[in-house]
Simulated assay, not measured.
Amino acid sequence: MSTLIVIPARYASTRYPGKPLVEIAGAGGVKKSLIQRSWEAAQAVSGEARVVVATDDTRISDAAKGFGAEVVMTSEACVNGTERCAEVVDTLGDEFELVVNLQGDAPLTPPWFVEALVKGLREAPEFDLATPVLRCDGATLASFRKDRAAGRVGGTTAIFGAGNRAMYFSKEVIPFCAEDFAPEAETPVFHHVGCYAYRPDTLRAYAKWPQGPLEQLEGLEQLRFLENARPVLCVQVEAPGRVFWELNNPTDLPLIEAALAAIGQE
């Protein structure tokens, strides 16, 4: 298979310990762990792809194997999901055209987001990796602002320039705009969705670079690429009729459950 989809998952999350094993109720009250819902999101991607869960924790490994996932054990030294993906590539030893990092805390990631990344990177050989961005509506922007005012991270935002080349990513709401927007109105703010498609050579190089100051300050793994002058393609995606939430904090759980119920996903 030319594409590898890796779902990185760790138990010792600073903000939400044990997050991959948290049970999330879908439509009809069906409960599944976060890691299972993320794996099912990967399985929904069209095309031939090998899907693996990458973890350093036996509890997550046992749970993943229990619902039929392939698991690759990785080192506790991995500081983020991208480093974990790089280790998986080295462990498997297979030659893949592209490697996708589907974050283990984003079960609402639509399959067409991943498909758009793969297509975008194949068509833009000048870029080393691709990541999706989603234009915020007024309601989402208001939620991000509310979270930041309360000292929480509601989501990561992105700015990009000509050719959709990434300029910066931040846990702050950027670019600054003082205007208030109606709930369904378009805004100039783009939500960065934590999903990536890499070229394997770039992924291997990433693991050898030290963490830069911006990555350390923001806690955003993708900034290491920008700090090493690697071009990142922002692929604009849409999710009409759907909301997109990552499980960053316990307060996100009811939002994700409501979103699953709204689309009828068990």
Rank of each mutant, 00 (worst) to 15 (best):
E227F: 10
A106R: 03
F127G: 02
W209S: 14
A158F: 04
E246G: 03
V22I: 13
E97C: 07
F113K: 10
T55H: 08
E246A: 09
L117E: 02
E186M: 07
P111F: 05
A150I: 06
K19P: 04
L220K: 10
G138L: 02
D137M: 09
D105T: 15
Q36M: 11
F190C: 06
K32P: 10
G26W: 00
T91L: 14
P213D: 15
C85F: 03
V22N: 01
S143T: 09
R37Q: 04
R122Y: 10
L214M: 14
H191I: 01
R135V: 06
E83G: 12
D56E: 13
P183V: 08
D94I: 03
A44V: 08
V52A: 06
I5H: 01
N80D: 15
I263K: 10
F190I: 10
N228A: 12
E126Q: 15
R204H: 13
K146H: 12
D57H: 14
A27H: 11
D57Y: 06
Q222K: 06
A41S: 14
A239F: 04
V99R: 13
A25W: 03
D62M: 08
S61N: 11
S61V: 03
Q211Y: 12
P110N: 05
G219Q: 08
L203H: 08
G93W: 13
G154W: 00
A261I: 00
V72H: 06
W39L: 06
L121W: 04
L203C: 07
K65Y: 06
E95P: 14
K146L: 12
P132L: 08
L226R: 07
P200C: 02
V235S: 04
A42L: 05
A116D: 05
A25F: 05
N248C: 05
V193T: 05
A41M: 05
Y196D: 08
T14Q: 14
W39S: 01
E218H: 13
R37S: 00
A229T: 10
A130E: 01
A130G: 13
V79F: 11
G120K: 09
V45T: 04
V88N: 02
A12I: 04
A166V: 12
T3V: 15
D90L: 15
I35M: 04
V237S: 02
R145Y: 05
D62V: 10
V235A: 03
P240Q: 09
H191T: 02
